[in-house]
Design a binder for these strands. Structure first.
Length: 405
RNA sequence: GGGUAGGUACCAGAGUGGCCAAAUGGGGCAGACUGUAAAUCUGCUGGCUUACGCCUUCGGAGGUUCGACUCCUUCCCUACCCA
């Protein structure tokens, strides 16, 4: 029922950042081949951020490979930690979520995740099930298995410590809690981004400390966002969402820097190794124009989530919009409740959300970033007649058809 | 518990009674150029306003003053050193 060891290892190894320790994984797989028992592959999910993007999909894609090899995917929703409210990064203390919210988010998470994952051999678990039952005595026993010095090895902690930034004690509990999850689930392999390496290793340590077989850890690279610098994240606005429309996916992919094309091809589109290599060498030798490589990448990504037809459509529309400077063929329409048919453009922009405020709208007009029916607006006091539908364009990408209700 | 240094706009960081909606840099947005790339150049970057001005903002709350980001009181928060 399982593919042979070597085949499995090749697939598992492809695209990974680190796989530790490889020989132990081989042993686990050998055993599963003998006993016919699937491995438990765990992936922790943050229920406070239920909007998945291509960055998440990197790890999910790896999980999918495990599923296809016959192993069990265990998606762990960190509802317990979510309820406490993770202060990592010192961003405003995240609002503690209620149980209900975490369940909802968990549900939404898995709905999106199944765009990548197979629904077969897929389990969803919530860590409040066991973490919520630990007594203070249990927690003390857990913390006794780890030292402060070990904790401070974590890059993020030591950096903050050196920089004189605050670290709350309970932040130390997060890695321990996550590690304990692996103890509770008898995890064979835990997946994560490279930033999770420390936490994953804690799981290994703790399993050993609790007399269990330690898990292997597998980290995937962190995919940079469309800005090419920061890691992809919703709060930075540099993400491509799994549920983005084909047009958005295509457009966002086209705006990534050249240096990331092959990376997006590999991790965003999950292209085969040979294809990625071909693209890399083509780019390097100059035989492949970066733009064409990018188009290929964008189409592959769209096709992965929306199918080939949608990819073609997105490409066609992109050509029309940006190469021929035309308007897209589908523009959202909005009807505004107005007293008279004419309205000041700044008001219209602010009301429809095309600009965040009237001041912002004025600035956009002054900067030359606003046009109505293809004509650039130059006067901040200008009005439009909205008795018929007019096409507004703000910046390069925002289009909206607006008329009086 | 004692001491020291701090808390300023998205971030970093100037500003020590009016010239401060607050220097500078980064980031962001827009324009030109392009391949919706990079680099470069230009403009903008609290809100409202028919641009005259008004309102909110410099950890919180009070106070002094004609006037406070700047002075005082008090509270909260952070780091470091000593115990």
């Amino acid at each position: 029922m399982f593919p042979p060891l070597n085949e499995q290892m090749d697939i598992i190894r492809s695209g990974v950042q680190e796989l530790l320790p490889e020989n132990e994984l081989a042993q686990k797989i050998e055993r599963s081949l003998k006993t016919g028992k699937s491995l438990q592959i765990k992936l922790g999910c943050d229920p406070s951020r239920p909007d998945l993007h291509l960055g998440h999909a990197v790890v999910l894609g790896k999980m999918r490979q495990f599923q296809d090899l016959g192993h069990n995917a265990v998606l762990l929703i960190g509802d317990f930690t979510g309820m406490i409210g993770d202060p990592t990064g010192r961003s405003k203390t995240r609002p503690a979520l209620t149980l209900e919210e975490t369940r909802q988010n968990g549900q939404s998470y898995i709905e999106q995740a199944t765009h990548v994952l197979s629904s077969e051999r897929l389990a969803l678990v919530y860590n409040s099930e066991w973490l919520g039952k630990l007594s203070f005595t249990d927690v003390v026993a857990l913390t006794a298995k780890f030292t402060v010095a070990q904790m401070l090895e974590r890059d993020d902690f030591s950096k903050r410590y050196k920089a004189g930034e605050p670290i709350s004690i309970h932040e130390f509990l997060y890695p321990l809690a996550q590690g304990y999850d692996s103890v509770a689930l008898d995890t064979d392999v835990e997946l994560g981004g490279t930033d999770q390496k420390f936490n994953l290793l804690v799981g290994r340590e703790l399993q050993r400390a609790y007399g269990k077989e330690p898990q292997c850890i597998l980290t995937m690279p962190i995919l940079e966002g469309t800005d090419g610098v920061e890691k992809m994240s919703k709060s930075l606005g540099n993400y491509i969402g799994i549920t983005d429309s084909p047009r958005e996916m295509f457009g966002k992919t086209m705006s990534i820097p050249d240096s990331l094309i092959a990376r997006y091809f590999r991790y965003g589109a999950f292209a085969a190794d040979a294809d990625v290599k071909a693209m890399e060498s083509g780019l390097q030798s100059g035989s492949l124009h970066p733009r064409n490589a990018k188009v290929q990448t964008a189409m592959s990504i769209v096709a992965r989530y929306h199918g080939d037809e949608a990819a073609k459509g997105a490409f066609g529309e992109f050509e029309r919009m940006f190469v021929n400077k035309d308007v897209p063929d589908e523009i959202e329409s909005v009807a505004l409740a107005l007293e008279s048919a004419t309205a000041a453009i700044v008001d219209v922009l602010a009301q429809t959300g095309l600009a965040a405020s009237k001041g912002e709208a004025r600035r956009l007009i002054q900067g030359g970033g606003v046009s109505v029916d293809g004509e650039r607006v130059s006067d901040i006091a200008a009005s439009v007649d909205l008795s018929t539908e007019r096409t507004f364009k703000v910046g390069k990408r925002k289009f909206l058809n607006i008329r009086k209700a």
